[in-house]
């Protein structure tokens, strides 16, 4: 945990936010387990469920406003992710992909929602579990499609290489598919959220410190710039959060598409 201290005359100095920013104590005191990130996940999931229920209730040919928005979002996942990455067989996996996309988008966006302001996905456990689920799914699909031997043969022994070289290459293919894929899914999402949240916290706390503690003309001017900067960064962060939800879902779809394909 790095806490660099900028000494200022008369003040206590500014303690810059570090990884400790992401550690929350249990809400109801020692011994209980519920923390803020968990609460965000629970409430966020409930929110998605309620909104989706409201959007699909009384579905009609001429959609209401809610139904239209819900169907547009679902249609986006279906057309831009499932059909693009997998093709026609992708229709089967749209429910999973849509669930992942809505879940991640909500948990990421929680990072810029006023008062919540914490992306639950910056805690590695949530992306990790989702990545493991995606990994199990695309491997299961591949095994079901090609048979256990056929799937691993396609993966590890591409035709056209003299056999002694397989000793060198097969383990690499195996590790890259089974371990590196979920790992990169997890790390890409987690640390995009982690870094984004850290930058926002730094700008806001730093700006506040400059204005109220450092004060003076310089402090207030620099602090104002920092606060304004944090607004711009919040907008940018919102973009990154949606993009990362999209990338995670798209890659899951591409892996499923790869497992379904006849030749790797």
């Amino acid at each position: 945990m790095s806490t660099s201290v900028l000494a200022v005359e008369g003040g206590e100095g500014f303690v810059s936010p570090g990884p400790s920013t992401f550690v929350y104590p249990p809400i109801f005191g020692e011994g209980t387990f519920l923390t803020k990130p968990m609460l965000i996940v629970i409430l966020g999931s409930a929110l998605i469920a309620v909104l989706m229920f409201l959007a699909t209730r009384r579905a009609s040919v001429v959609p209401s406003k809610g139904q239209f928005v819900g169907e547009s979002l679902y249609g986006f996942v279906r057309n831009s992710i499932a059909l693009d990455a997998i093709g026609k067989p992708g229709m089967k996996y749209v429910p999973y992909l849509a669930t992942v996309f809505f879940f991640l988008a909500t948990m990421n966006i929680a990072g810029i929602v006023p008062l919540v302001q914490f992306p639950a996905t910056s805690r590695i456990a949530f992306p990790l579990i989702l990545a493991v689920i995606s990994c199990v799914i695309f491997n299961a699909i591949g095994i079901k499609r090609h048979g256990l031997g056929g799937y691993f043969k396609d993966m590890m022994f591409p035709p056209g290489i003299p056999w002694p070289v397989y000793i060198l290459l097969a383990p690499i293919e195996f590790v890259s598919t089974i371990i590196i894929r979920p790992l990169t899914l997890t790390l890409r999402l987690t640390f995009n959220m982690f870094a984004g949240h850290l930058v926002l916290v730094l700008f806001i706390l730093g700006g506040e410190y400059l204005i109220f503690e450092y004060s003076g003309v310089v402090g207030i001017a620099a602090g104002t710039v920092a606060i304004l900067g944090s607004l711009i960064l919040t907008a940018f962060e919102g973009f990154v959060q949606l993009l990362q939800a999209y990338v995670f879902t798209l890659l899951s779809a591409l892996y499923i598409g790869g497992a379904l394909a006849d030749e790797h």
Binding site: A85, G87, E173, V175, S176, I180, R181, T184, G258
Partner: peptide, 25 residues
């Protein structure tokens, strides 16, 4: 579009292969 997606997948796939090569051996 499919070609663009394939490009993306290939980029990540290539990165994964180099990382796994270094990790395994």
């Amino acid at each position: 579009k499919a070609l663009g997606r394939k490009g993306e997948a290939d980029a990540y796939g290539a990165l994964g292969l180099v990382i796994s090569g270094v990790l395994v051996w």
